[in-house]
Design a protein around this nucleic acid. Structure first.
Lengths: 208, 208, 208, 208
DNA sequence: TATGAATGAGGATTCATTCAT
DNA sequence: CATGAATGAATCCTCATTCAT
């Protein structure tokens, strides 16, 4: 029956929506206060439901937090992939990647979340696995951009993976500084500095 | 009385020594497990004394942890400063700085500690203050090295602070990757890659 | 209308069947894990229906559990009564009673259930009432067997109720030992030992 | 120093005393309400200390309850052993054993505790192990009494262990009935009935 | 100083029961 | 009838901190 199907579907949709609510609430709170300062109660409250119900969806706090991290990162990767493929000019494509990846300003929630991932990955193998996976994906994207630029003759690199790792490291390092409020640093500034390094590494003239 | 003074002094020394023991124990544990996973009991045990005694020296757990971070950072800066001033050749001096700063290998305790500092600084103003101070000092050192190299005619940079920030960012970014176990990356590899970037940024030939 | 009546009847039958399913599932689980370790969810799952539905039939968990106990006990008594009346020889009738009553082997589910009943009866008046009733019935049966044997001239007892109580106690005591895995004890062994005691108590030769 | 030693000793004594308080409180409550109906809070309250302190001594609720059981049974065994060895007459010795072992009246706390042990042993291996151990000890004692009686020429038994098991079973079975309030049964009654069975099993005249 | 027993607030998790669909 | 999402009270355990010795 169409009705029954609809019923089931609606229920499932509703369930999925509630799950997303929880995960989003968790992600927000992690970025605001840090993983360690979150109580399940807080997540429930922000998600607008009872504590028990959070447990209904996520067997343990750890699982919930892992999901929150994963969802944030998935969303990021998806956004990046969706955007850059439409850009043909290698330098513009690289610029866009940097803009999307780097921190936007002090206490950028996405980056605070990364700090949590790192500090937990260093200590918890499950989180480490999660990070490794996400990290690999974003590395591949950047290396792809470098290769594309080389193919187009815009970049010069004898080892795209290495070059990508260096650019990526610069993005990370500067984003940390920005997120933690280094005075005089802005989102635009970070992007410019990253591109400075990129240019130094990718300019045909320079030999490494 | 000299004797009494001696007594007092000895006592104070003993007290200071015990305090250092506690702080060191705490620093070790932070690096091993992360700030969130430390019990005062554990610190006491590793420091070889009772819980009550740890509380006697540190009014609160937070204060103890902050002290541990601070001491670790101070020790690092002191070591760097003590070492590099003895080196005259700019490139060697820079290389030494990178060697001392970058992570030595996967799960390098010093870097795990950094992760903790970042994730807490993003969320806790006291830790943020602590980090800011330390960060400023290490930036100044690196910028000093860059300036020194320029003076010596070995480096070329129209904005030493900016260049220092970029090199510093690369060190951070690659150290993160190494600490979290990026396959194929070694301590030596990180140093080399950092120097690659540094060369690209500091070579007289290159114009940014 | 006959049709409507049929409909109602079928419905009621279906309902009764579902209720029996629930009760049986509960009884099984009690024997397996003990009263304290049962979740309504588990009962529902084993009965093949939803939690909500179990609540639909049984207002509270306690009521369900009591029903499960009661049904188990009733089933036991019914089986005993149905069986022994067909046996004419007093010793064989007694033997059959012992065989049906005593534990069959280690962790005999029926006996584990008894343990639960006892421990709860000692503490919960409702369960105590349930047990008292059941116990009285089974005592009456055994006393009846003793009297029947005396009438037939096969047994000798000046106080059949007392003798029955003693035999019954032996069955209980040995069944406990068997259920809890006393090494060297088997189902057959328990029956033999019970009959040993019975013979000692019922032999015409012996005077107590 | 004597003082220091005294200090340590006093502290240890105090600690042991508090531990006993907790265990006793637990044992009382188990007998009153049954294992399943006890909260750690209740134990703490009855023992006159904070919840946290109970955890300080017993890592988990389960461990506490096991200890409570063990202590009860140890005390029982000790009492039995201390008493019977002073009695020379075999029948009197047996009688004393039965008096000490059997339930004293309805809801005898010691026996309610046994019910809990049984129902948990059937389901929890740790408790099963505990029971096995305690059970073996009490069996050995009764078998020893039987052997002693045989040696003295007062009893006759071709298999003391088996006879002991039967007597023990009778004690258990009747104590259950008494504990659960079988009407017309008293503590004295149980002892008499047990001895009736014992006589039937141990009389030189009777052959099994 | 030094100890470790003692406290109690705090937080995660479980689960019987209800209710909208 | 039937489902299973949703609730929230109940409970165990952890742990920073205090305090008597």
């Amino acid at each position: 029956m169409a009705e029954a199907d609809n019923g089931v579907t609606k229920r499932q949709e509703r369930g999925a929506a509630r799950e997303r609510q929880i995960v989003s609430a968790a992600a927000e709170l992690i970025a605001e206060r840090g993983l360690a300062n979150i109580r399940v109660t807080d997540v429930a409250e922000r998600a607008g439901m009872s504590v028990g119900h959070v447990s209904y969806y996520f067997r343990s706090k750890t699982m919930l937090l892992m999901r929150a991290i994963q969802q944030s990162e998935d969303a990021f990767i998806d956004r990046v992939e969706a955007t850059i493929h439409g850009i043909k000019d290698p330098w513009r494509r690289l610029t866009k990647y940097v803009e999307l990846s780097a921190a936007n300003g002090p206490r950028d929630p996405g980056w605070v979340l990364w700090f949590e991932v790192w500090s937990n990955a260093a200590v918890n193998d499950e989180v480490a696995g999660l990070h490794e996976e996400l990290d690999a994906r974003s590395c591949r994207i950047l290396a792809g951009i470098v290769r594309y630029g080389c193919e187009q003759g815009a970049f010069s690199s004898d080892d795209p993976d290495r070059t990508a790792a260096l650019i990526s490291a610069t993005i990370d390092g500067l984003s940390i500084q920005l997120t933690l409020g280094r005075p005089g640093l802005t989102g635009q500034g970070v992007v410019q500095l990253c591109l400075t390094t990129a240019r130094a590494l990718l300019s045909p003239a320079t030999a490494h």
